[in-house]
Design a protein around this nucleic acid. Sequence first.
DNA 1: TTTGAAAATGAACATTTGTTGAAAGGGGGA
DNA 2: TCCCCCTTTCAACAAATGTTCATTTTCAAA
Lengths: 311, 311
Amino acid sequence: MDKEHDYEEKLLIKVAWYYYIENITQQEIGEYLGISRLRVNRLLDKARKNGIIHFSVRDGNSSRMQIERDLIRRFHLKDAFIVPPAVNGIDINESVAQAAAMYIHDRLDKSSCINMGYGDTPGRILNHLANMSESPVNVVSLTGGVSCYLPNTQSSIFNARLHLTPAPLLMKDAQMVSAIEEEPGVQQIRNMATLAQMTIIGIGSMDENATILTNGTLSYNDFLLLSMKGAVGDMLCHFIDKDGRPVPSDIEGRLISTSLETLKSLDNTIGVAAGIAKTKAILGALRGGYLDILITDEATASNILEICDSE
Amino acid sequence: MDKEHDYEEKLLIKVAWYYYIENITQQEIGEYLGISRLRVNRLLDKARKNGIIHFSVRDGNSSRMQIERDLIRRFHLKDAFIVPPAVNGIDINESVAQAAAMYIHDRLDKSSCINMGYGDTPGRILNHLANMSESPVNVVSLTGGVSCYLPNTQSSIFNARLHLTPAPLLMKDAQMVSAIEEEPGVQQIRNMATLAQMTIIGIGSMDENATILTNGTLSYNDFLLLSMKGAVGDMLCHFIDKDGRPVPSDIEGRLISTSLETLKSLDNTIGVAAGIAKTKAILGALRGGYLDILITDEATASNILEICDSE
DNA sequence: TTTGAAAATGAACATTTGTTGAAAGGGGGA
DNA sequence: TCCCCCTTTCAACAAATGTTCATTTTCAAA
């Protein structure tokens, strides 16, 4: 029995060798080794599955490719883009924002329209995008709050037409929200959002550097409470747990922001986030099925896959 | 132009990736990348030729061939690698060279350095190796003579940094050798050789197809004389008898070549030679204890063991 | 020994791949 | 500009490969 196994293994190696290294046809290998072509075919299958034969692509990008494919397969994405690790002291957020802008630019038709979420990264992307495109990009905001969407670049060319929701991000109470949502100006923006070709949103994590915290939209206490309720991050200020389910809170009712259901229904939603601190948040967003495309850095992507595998 | 080349390279990588790693059909790849199936087919050809894609057979220690084990035990080797017998008309030298390149590639650290001996097989190995590695391989020549070490591949990627001894292989007389050996350029190469991670040498036999004979370094008379003195083959142009002892001759003094003693003292010396004509030569090299690792073909390996057993 | 389930096999077919020769570009040099 | 030579492309075919399904074999438990 063990001997049989050993013989089979040898056969596997020989067949793999002849087929892949010597380029001999399965037919001929079969004749030479005195086995049927079909057997050769199956042995090759086995050899591939068992890793007896191993393909490798000579290229520095291959590991990133691998990660991209893994992410796409695992989370049923349309695409994934992994940014190489930062070299020396370069801000990974900036790299990823730049990559995202490039990615979007390559895929954006002339004079078309994109939705933008709230956050530091989307803001940066917008800046890059507006700088690199020759014809103006139409940008529709998915949330209230305007500061994030405004250009903070000194470049003279800012080729973007901004269509911002004329409202703050967080209101005092739900009544105010309903009132604002009735506004024609707000409705108009909401309608535009449905026409956009793609949607770019940032993914926030629960650490103390979160934009919504540092810009004063939420208090530290709100944040802590959400964390305790199981929130791992947010998209458009909607907090989600590790499986992407919404975490209920009083904030939810006070938001001027596209709902998660609407987000899910959009076709080309690109999630952008960098840094290992965001790992859990991104994983939540992926598991929730909100994203069609993910753009992140290599370290974070590896982290995500690692967590998945270990669970 | 350069941009074109770059694009082609990327395409090659993508196509190779999709085909070999993702198992997508050529048809589909073509549709996906917007090129014809035929183009995909030709790109794959190119990818294989240029070593963009690289196959390697895992030499699992588990099912190591009996012959390999026997060789290792009998000659106190660190390892042995036996290439399956040639099927029809396939050049066994080429197979063995490819196997050797694979073997080395799998075990070579990034950006490290290897020594190379003189000969047809080492030359082939160098070509394969330079094609399959992503980061350049540093190669140090162990002998004078340069033609053997130069790339003769059509591949656009030749990832090797050659450090060649700036001298011929065979000088007029011993005085000239001493003079050359004093040269700083030669000394420098000699010093580099001591730093290499491994050493690849061919083993020459005493038949009329020997490289040193066909390329005119030695005359047929020299050769005959050496044969009569008991030489069975050579390493780095040092002739040895059936037990691996050096065969004295006037050639010895006129050589620009690493000495056999130095060779013996090196740590990871890989001897590569194929074809039953080389049996005696390989056996001599093994008995002389010059090698740590042997790479050869199955027929030759069996022959070696048979001779040993019958003595 | 019988029997049933799982695995290995083989024939035939469908799909995929490689190769051919003819036609269509596409630069340099006169 | 034309012409020649070279490369690329395409269609169609031949070859190789992968898959399916019915059949046989194997092996273990009854």
